[in-house]
């Protein structure tokens, strides 16, 4: 239930982020026992590179606290969509925070908004939609993969978000978003291999007073076809973009500074006999410290093209 609102202490059943380091965090469920493969109830022990954690021990602990592992320590954090996106079980390729932030902004999602999403996928984006639209809005999320839809439904329930979301198992390209959703949506989001097929259904689902549309596509051809249909249906403010986040690695670097001036003049004759002394003057180097910033070798070069559009008010829906 730890996704509903900010809370201070871990309760039994909470999803908790066990934060080991920037590159190592895990979403664990705060339950004292689990059932193993043999069907036996056993004590819930979570293994990490820094040793094991008896999960029972974190129940009642304040979020943000340090917890001891058998060979080190970790911090327990309350999950939120950002941390969840980094730790969730991948059932599909997912969209990450930089793109998602732009999607939420451009779709103008705020409390009270009705959003239609397809496909649900791993629920990464859904969690963001839900944070932004609760407690007064609603998310309708569709996936054509039955098991994925079912998993997502259970997950939302477990996360305390079940009241704000309906999960559908449905092929929206062929069947649309159900007639119950005609004219109810403030925003429609598509992440589909053939978004152009679903655009007419998005058109139907959007409110007569208008609304916003977004399609996420890895390939430019999908965006091109999608824009074609959007244009035909009277969408405007059509706009495609890429958002690429770059991390800066901050560190103090020590840089050698070499002296070359001394080479201009002959060596001090007095120093010459003392060959140890001589050797020392041969290394005219000092080290200076710099607070530097650089990018990692590997950066995200492409995630997808985001195509946004506005359905203006009062377009007749035939």
């Amino acid at each position: 239930m730890s996704f509903l609102k900010p809370k201070t202490h871990i309760e039994q059943g909470d999803v908790v982020i066990l934060y080991l380091s920037v590159n190592s965090m895990h979403a664990i469920e705060a339950v004292p026992t689990i059932v193993n493969k043999k069907g036996e109830t056993i004590v819930n022990i979570f293994q990490t590179p820094y040793g094991s954690l008896k999960v029972q021990n974190i129940i009642g602990v304040e979020y943000g606290s340090r917890v001891e592992l058998s060979k080190g320590y970790a911090h327990v954090l309350q999950p939120n969509p950002e941390l969840w996106t980094q730790t969730l079980p991948h059932r599909t390729q997912i969209i990450y925070t930089p793109d998602i932030s732009m999607i939420l902004h451009q779709l103008e999602v705020r409390p009270g908004a009705v959003v239609v999403e397809s496909g649900t996928g791993s629920g990464s984006l859904s969690h963001y939609f839900l944070r932004a639209l609760k407690p007064t809005g609603r998310l309708h999320t569709f996936d054509f993969h039955e098991a994925r839809a079912e998993q997502a439904r259970e997950e939302f329930q477990r996360h305390g978000l079940g009241d704000f979301v309906t999960v559908y198992h449905r092929d929206v390209c062929n069947l649309g978003f159900t007639s119950e959703l005609d004219g109810v949506a403030d925003a429609v989001f598509l992440d589909l291999p053939a978004p152009d097929l679903a655009v007419p259904h998005a058109f139907k689902a959007l409110k007569l007073s208008g609304g916003r549309f977004c399609s996420f596509s890895p390939c430019i051809e999908q965006s091109q076809r999608c824009i074609n249909v959007l244009t035909q249906l009277g969408f405007n403010e059509i706009c495609s973009m890429e958002v690429l986040q770059q991390e800066s690695i901050i560190k103090t670097r020590t840089m050698p500074v070499i002296d070359l001036e001394f080479l201009k003049a002959p060596k001090d004759a007095a120093a010459e006999p003392n060959s140890n002394e001589d050797t020392k003057t041969k290394e005219p180097k000092e080290i200076k410290k710099y607070l530097t910033s650089s990018h990692p070798q590997l950066l995200p070069g492409h995630t997808g093209f985001l195509t946004f559009a506005t359905l203006p008010p009062n377009i007749p829906k035939a």
């Binding site: 934060y19 920037v22 965090m25 911090h75 954090l77 930089p98 430019i220 965006s223 091109q224 824009i227 706009c239 495609s240 973009m241 890429e242 958002v243 690429l244 986040q245 770059q246 991390e247 800066s248 901050i250 103090t252 607070l291 910033s293 093209f305 195509t307």
Partner: peptide
């Protein structure tokens, strides 16, 4: 500088400094 101070303080974790490229497309 702020990153280094916060890192040294131990009061904040998962510190990241980021910036973005925003490329719009003519399609």
């Amino acid at each position: 500088e702020t990153y280094m101070e916060l890192k040294a303080s131990g009061k904040v974790t998962n510190l990241h400094v980021t910036s973005n490229w925003l490329r719009t497309y003519q399609i």
